Simulated scan of single mutants.
Amino acid sequence: MDERRLSSAQISEFHEIGYTIVPGFFSKAETDKLYGAALEDEIMRKHALDLNDQSGKKTKLSLWYTPGDDIYGQMIRSERMVNSAACLLNSEAPVCHFHTKLMQKEPRVGGAWEWHQDYGYWYKNQFMFPDQMLSVMIALTAANKENGCLQVIKGSHKMGRVNHGFAGEQVGADMVMVDNALKTMELVYCELQPGDALFFHSNLLHRSEANLSDRPRWSIISVYVSQSNPAYNEETGSRRTPVAIVPDEALLETQGGASTGRDFLRKEEDKALEDTGWESGS
């Protein structure tokens, strides 16, 4: 099987346990090109958001909505990414792109991500169907226990959405339910090599530790949504527009560097960080 396509076993695994890992989803040459571009991208650095965890350590990310023609867009719009998402989303509607994040967890200073479900954030955007949303994490550097790799609770997507409140400047899940989930289901450390892909359901409980190692942990996370999934508190347009798919070869063939036209999220515009009043009851 082409390692850039999901097998029937991987599709079944995603639905059963809430995630699946695809080793070597992007080649070394592709991953090196993406990481090199990200390291040199001053525009990305300028638009990075700092989000404090509960200890005050900062997690840095840059988030944008519309996939363009630059190197990131070639990754987001690649046939392997979009077709894989289509296999996993619970819909026959076209696949759209909600947003992509460049996660920059620097050595010894990169903060933690508290336990949460992505749909705990996107519920505030008023997306209706969590089964029609998923995330794809592409590791740009090695991710392991030492540098704060993603931890997931296997099968926790079957719990449905749990209540979320604020944990530092992040949205965190109700820890009573998290503790119950940890008593019931397996905790898994998702260790990845550069180029590996982790596909995970919007209701999968996950977190990551601070990076206390001397090595960075960088990744790109793209979120795909079915066009049939309305969001009643989200103005951005890319989530309604079917992805314009490009061939897998486009990433290596493109000569474009960083784009100046990306529509970055600003912290004050993040719906998930708005206090609606019900968070204190989590």
Rank of each mutant, 00 (worst) to 15 (best):
I21M: 05
P23T: 14
K57H: 08
A37C: 03
S62F: 00
L63E: 03
Y35N: 04
S62Q: 01
F26V: 14
S27H: 09
G24H: 09
S62A: 01
F26R: 02
A29N: 12
I21Q: 03
Q54K: 15
L34F: 10
T59F: 15
L61W: 08
S55L: 15
K46M: 12
D32N: 01
I21P: 01
K58L: 10
E40K: 14
A48P: 04
T59K: 14
K33D: 00
S27E: 13
K57E: 01
T31Q: 13
Q54R: 15
T59M: 14
A38K: 01
I21R: 02
L49I: 04
L51D: 03
Y19V: 02
L49Y: 04
D50N: 09
K28Y: 09
Q54V: 15
I43L: 07
G36K: 12
D32F: 00
T20W: 05
R45K: 15
R45L: 14
G36F: 11
A37W: 00
E42W: 06
G18N: 08
K60G: 01
G24I: 08
K28F: 11
K60N: 03
A29G: 13
T31A: 14
E40G: 14
T20H: 04
L39K: 15
M44R: 06
L39N: 12
H47Y: 06
K28C: 11
T59G: 15
G36Y: 05
F25S: 00
G18F: 06
L61P: 02
D41L: 12
L34M: 11
Y19N: 01
E42A: 09
Y35E: 00
K60I: 03
K28T: 11
K46W: 14
